[in-house]
């Protein structure tokens, strides 16, 4: 049963995450809004013939941001002191699970046991330290608590419980976990509890801010300086939107006509604002 829930939650995670990604990918192309961290191609004459930031540059910037939480480090250092261990801990735990599941086939269980414990405990400790620190700051710090919705106060203790339970499982049942989980499908009680908590976490993850962080990069919100050129994919997609009806109701809009007509064919009716 527990394995059914666990694998079900993995499936749920994959489907929910895919649906969220789909929602993001299929979103209508938006107007060129943009923010810049420094000089852009617009500093050049006839910029339309020049090279914009490459995908590699964007990717490198994204990796550095995600790895070091640079924005928080520079802008909100006190918060970063807890956020960073939390994130590094989470990254390490994800890697730990991957290493554990795949490494076990080629590395001896004794080796895994020694280094797995050390790695797991350090990662768990970092994450736990981050969680406690973040929770205390969210409760104590005036700025951090003012608009923080009640639901998020439940999140941190829940994560702490998962970690504590995980620590217990790894510390006392490490040798059994791999075989129990993957070979015999009869996990012990501690592992069962861990799998249950992990399942809840997996169900929550697609709705968390972690996904948002990735979407920010997908959106290219900060670097989306890809110009629209004639005959391009961008132009094709925009043309589709220009055929949509304008539905806004204010008198100057002329609701019901298509965007293309409203913007280009009709004179703006001279109506006073209210």
């Amino acid at each position: 049963m527990i394995l059914f829930i666990f694998y079900g939650s993995i499936l749920f995670f994959i489907i929910a995450a895919a649906l969220r990604v789909r929602r993001c990918v299929s979103a209508p192309i938006h107007l060129h809004w943009e923010l810049y961290k420094g000089s852009s191609v617009y500093e050049l004459t006839e910029w339309w013939g020049k090279t914009h930031n490459t995908f590699g540059e964007k990717l490198w910037s994204m990796i550095l941001d995600l790895l070091f939480l640079r924005e928080f480090y520079h802008r909100n250092r006190n918060f970063w002191y807890f956020l960073y261990p939390f994130h590094i801990g989470i990254y390490s735990l994800v890697l730990w699970h991957a290493w554990f599941l795949f490494g076990a086939k080629v590395i001896s269980i004794e080796f895994l046991s020694i280094w797995g414990r050390l790695w797991g405990h350090v990662a768990t400790g970092l994450t736990f330290f981050g969680i406690v620190g973040i929770f205390i700051k969210r409760v104590k710090d005036e700025d951090l608590k003012i608009y923080y919705p009640p639901i998020h106060y439940l999140k941190w203790p829940f994560l702490a419980v998962i970690l504590l339970e995980a620590f217990y499982s790894v510390q006392f049942y490490f040798g059994d976990i791999f075989e129990d989980l993957l070979l015999e499908f009869h996990p012990n009680v501690a592992t069962k509890a861990h799998l249950l908590f992990a399942s809840v976490l997996l169900i929550y993850l697609p709705f968390s801010h972690i996904m948002q962080l990735f979407f920010r990069y997908y959106h290219y919100l900060r670097w989306d300086d890809v110009p629209n050129v004639r005959g391009s994919e961008i132009e094709r997609r925009i043309k589709e939107h220009l055929e949509r009806p304008v539905t806004w109701s204010a008198p100057h809009i002329q609701s019901g006509k298509r965007w293309r007509e409203v913007a280009s064919k009709l004179e703006c009716p001279i109506t006073e604002g209210k």
Binding site: C24, A27, P28, I29, H30, L31, W33, E71, F72, R75, N76, F79, D143, L144, I146, Y147, Y148, P149, H209, Q212, L213, F215, R216, H219, L221, H241, R244, T247, W248
Partner: peptide, 21 residues
């Protein structure tokens, strides 16, 4: 109705972690 700014608007509404940075 709001294709010109839907994506960055939704991103902005959904991504805030209330850190007040």
């Amino acid at each position: 109705d709001n294709w010109p700014f839907w994506q960055p608007l939704i991103q902005s509404l959904e991504s805030c972690v209330r850190c007040q940075t």
